[in-house]
Design a protein around this nucleic acid. Sequence first.
DNA 1: CATAGAATGATGTTAGCA
DNA 2: TGCTAACATCATTCTATG
Length: 609
Amino acid sequence: MDKNLSGEDNDDIDWDTEDELEIQEIQDTVFSSCTDLRTTGQHVVCCDGEASSSSVPFRSKFIQQFVVMGFPEESIAKAIKQNGENSDLVLDSLLTFKALDDSPEEQPSVSPPLEPSISSDDSASEYNENVLNNVYEEDSWSSDSDNYINTVKQRYLNDEGSSLSEKEKMLLFLANMGYPAEEASIAMDRCGPKASLPELVDFICAAQMSRAEDPYLLEDVKPNLKDILNDCGGYKKRKMYNELCKQKKQREISGEEPIRLPKSMIGFGIPTESVPRMVQRILPEKTIGPPYFYYENVALAPKGVWDTIKRHLYEIEPEFVDSKYFSATARKRGYLHNLPIENRFPLFPLPPRTIHEALPLSKRWWPSWDTRSKLNCLQTAIGSARLTDKIRKAVEKYDGEPPMEIQKYVLYHCKKWNLVWVGRNKVAPLEPDEVEMLLGFPKNHTRGGGISRTDRYKSLGNSFQVDTVAYHLSVLRDLFPNGINVLSLFSGIGGAEVALYRLGVPLSNVVSVEKSEVNRNIVRSWWEQTNQRGNLIHFDDVQLLSRDRLKKLIESLGGFDLVIGGSPCNNLAGSNRVSRDGLEGKESSLFFDYVRILDDVKSIMSRHR
DNA sequence: CATAGAATGATGTTAGCA
DNA sequence: TGCTAACATCATTCTATG
């Protein structure tokens, strides 16, 4: 597997051999390395004028791109004979040949990557059986919440009120107001530990109303706890909040209720909650996999954007999650998917969750008046040297603590640019490898191979937070123990692939679509370094991924198990001063290609089943 | 030419308070 | 309820520099 056949060094190989076994062997070897199929234009990109100085003649390069993909040369010759030198048509034919040749039981059996070989320390090497044991006292709640309430009530009645946690007190209070325990606790989990009573009641009312009209949230309604608990106060308030619910309903009837971001962005749950969640959702028939799908974008998009996204993705409720619960850096994102949400588990080792844990060396220089424990969202640009110099000069004028005004000035810029303390009076932007670590990638994931420092920041800033996504994807591990076929759109630096790999989900076939060549190179080298046994097929433009091509891919690979991707946020992100045009913007409108491709995949697969 | 630096606000949410 | 202030935000584009 250490042969690198994706370069131009493979001219030595005698492709004219008649030996079937040898062909097969080479095919296996080559197919397991990665491929880069350009789809721009009628011919391969490398055949333009500049590349003509290469010693490799055009024809062999044209053939080579398919050889590298792992197709036998006879098939390639046949396909070229049929279609001429049109890479699209040739690929279609080749995939058809492959589909006809492959018998169903020939699906590659890929063994899990038990010993991942990333060289860094914080990589997947810690993956082991422990993840299975990561059960956080789930049953104490989900088995019978009413019993729990009874216990709490008993303690309360036994004058143990002071020993009750804030959460338990609130739960009791809500129960007294007549709300089912289950709904109350869901509300508390969703709204966060500091949620006020009105917020919680508001949430419960909204949930009740949406359940009444929303077929996607058909939870069992538990018996009302009014019968269990005595009514000891809160009656007046309940009346008030019922009034509030009425108003809300009025609003809902008169117009569309827009998606509201939850104050505490924990989605359908996070691994570190003291009390596990009991959220259950039942998706409508037509949205249930295969394939599973997973869509991501910025949570703080302009008004109405998430409503549109939801409308185009089967009206499934997105979950909004801030990665600050998984990492030392914030990242507020919406995730819309049809994955199960029960029995999720996090990646191990758990990443550092405070700045000091993530950057221990900074602790020494961190002034007490900078009270940050988490970094803000990592973006694509970093603070300048001039700014850090200004800050140093501003701070070092004072012996001890600088005056309030200076503190304010420094903190404003530190927060804005995610600056950290690296020396006496010295702040600095994060190093690229620190960003990699904070986002859950192996160290040096984006380093080298002709990639500039600026490009590293840019690629990383546009990426998934791996731990967050992996937590959501973790349910796939038991569903696909023998390997998964992934269609990864807008792959970037491979956040989805890295997440699945670190989870121990064997990657059988990955079709990765990514516009940036720099990013494709990063994923390719990661794929090789981690000794993946599956196939990686690269495309560069989602817009050129036609239904026909998808059909051929599905026939060839046996369908996709997961369609995953986060479409461009350029025109949605708050940092964009120039072209924050919403979903219709130049790049962000590619969301509709995600929808188109997902729809195509679903319809093609349902026809083939 | 490639790379890094610097300048360029607006939108939306939340908290606090009268 | 309505106002204000505080705060965060997967960025773009021109310019300098080698």
